[in-house]
Design a protein around this nucleic acid. Structure first.
Length: 432
DNA sequence: TCTGGGGTCCTAGGACCC
DNA sequence: TCTGGGGTCCTAGGACCC
């Protein structure tokens, strides 16, 4: 060993922390429902399809991530598991509470996902960083009711691994900072658990005799570059303590927004598909307006149920280039319906549809459409009013006729918890 | 009967141009 | 019979993430 006896810090003095909410969706369901404490809890995907979040107790029962709910029905009943449909309004609200609290406690933060954030703690001494981590954990628990685990290390990839270690061992925070500790933990970590290494790469590595994160960190750079592209190479370097993935504090401008759903029951006729597609288009339009941007293209896709090999399969998409960038619900619905009609074929049972708006540009930068006679100022005012009404009185208060009212295609959501924090009508009542 | 949704990044290869 | 080389742009597809 040339550099670094045991105990020498790695990574050129950089220090990252990954703060990750424990079993986030399950924890959100628990905050307003203390009866769920110590009880196994699972949250299901849209359509009550598969398990996407599990409390510790549910994990203990051997319930795997992503398993279809119907396969474990008996197990759920036998153990009195509390089962919830996903309630994204609730989780989104908790996420912003957590991130706001966190942002106030740390020098610099990157919100990485709904339940995770990276902090840059470079320049803070290890003991102080650990003290800060404990303080963050206590404050988040007190202010939001959400438990977190924190991993600290000289690179983001190692901070992820440190975080897994903290979670697995049920400790609030773990500092992975010396060569000796890093080597030991990498030897104990399967390559497939490393951030950036999915199934395919794990299999490729295994085929070349590399099974642990440590093996990957020792793999020849040229081989990694050739077989796993530059992203793979960055991962390898990060495992060695060389920070290659930097903080992104300002969220980069989004490139696409997608709204899609599987239907509760498959749909054959054009009309319900039109209603669904129109609804997805208005949701995309509202998201565009919230993010203050406009789309230059819109894509609609539809497909049958790929799991039903006994039924005829069909899948198509159609892209429409808009005459000028827009976030107007009416224009986007028009384009979406046009695209849908172009690809719809009779005689199939459609299971899923979606709308993707692409080629996003900032709203202010939108060129006025010279060939459109429409008064864009009036259109914008109309959309502002629509957003306001739907914000104040609830989603779907005001909608476009094509969206329809039958909603035959709607999701199955049989176990939805109340929107405690985002709907006046569903606020908790406390009796004294 | 029942199997999620929403993103990003990278590369190879074709079209096209000079 | 001969039929280069190099650049850019775009797209489809594959890999990954939570």
């Amino acid at each position: 060993m040339t550099s670094g006896d045991a105990g020498t810090p790695k990574g050129g003095g950089k220090l990252f922390a990954l703060v990750d909410c424990n079993n986030f969706y399950a924890s959100c369901e628990r905050v307003f429902n203390p009866a769920l404490r110590n009880r196994p809890v699972v949250v299901l995907s849209n359509n009550d399809g598969c398990v996407i979040a599990r409390s510790e107790e549910a994990k203990q029962l051997g319930i795997r991530m992503g398993v279809p709910a119907f396969e474990i029905e008996p197990l759920l009943t036998a153990h009195g598991v509390a089962v919830f449909s996903s309630n994204y309004a609730l989780y989104g609200d908790f996420s912003s509470r957590v991130m706001t609290t966190l942002g106030a406690l740390a020098p610099s933060m990157e919100v990485y996902s709904i339940d995770e954030a990276f902090l840059d703690l470079t320049g803070i001494a290890p003991e102080e960083a650990m003290a800060l981590a404990h303080c963050i954990r206590r404050t988040l628990l007190k202010n939001t009711g959400i438990p977190v685990s924190i991993g600290l290390a000289p690179t983001k990839t190692l901070a992820k691994i440190a975080n897994h270690f903290a979670k697995k061992n049920n400790i609030p925070a773990y500092l992975l900072d010396t060569e000796e500790k890093i080597t030991e933990l990498l030897r104990a970590t399967p390559a497939g658990e490393v951030w950036g290494i999915g199934k395919k790469y794990a299999a490729l590595l295994a085929a070349h005799g590399m099974v642990t994160a440590y093996d990957l960190s020792r793999a020849p750079e040229g081989w990694v570059r050739k077989n796993m592209t530059v992203t793979g190479l960055r991962t390898r370097q990060e495992l060695c303590g060389l920070s290659c993935i930097s903080m992104e504090e300002a969220a980069p401008a989004r490139q696409a927004i997608c709204t899609s759903r599987s239907f509760g029951t498959s749909q054959e006729a054009l009309e319900p598909l039109e209603e669904a597609t129109a609804t997805f288009a208005t949701v995309c339009a509202a998201k565009l307006r919230r993010e203050k941007c406009a789309a230059t293209q819109l894509m609609v896709f539809i497909h049958t149920n790929a799991f039903r090999s006994d039924q005829p399969q069909y899948a198509r998409n159609r892209v429409i280039t808009l005459t000028s960038p827009t976030n107007d619900s009416i224009q986007l619905v028009k384009a979406a319906v046009e695209a849908l009609r172009a690809i719809y074929r009779k005689g199939y049972l459609y299971k899923k549809a979606g709308v993707i708006v692409m080629g996003l540009v900032p709203e202010g930068q939108v060129q006025k459409d010279l060939f459109s006679g429409e008064d864009s100022g009036r259109q914008r005012k109309l959309m502002e009013s629509l957003d306001q009404l739907n914000r104040r009185y609830g989603r779907g208060t005001l909608q476009i006729a094509t969206q329809g009212t039958t909603r035959q295609w709607r999701l199955r959501q049989e176990k939805l918890s109340p929107a405690y924090t985002t709907r006046w009508s569903e606020l908790m009542e406390i009796r004294l």
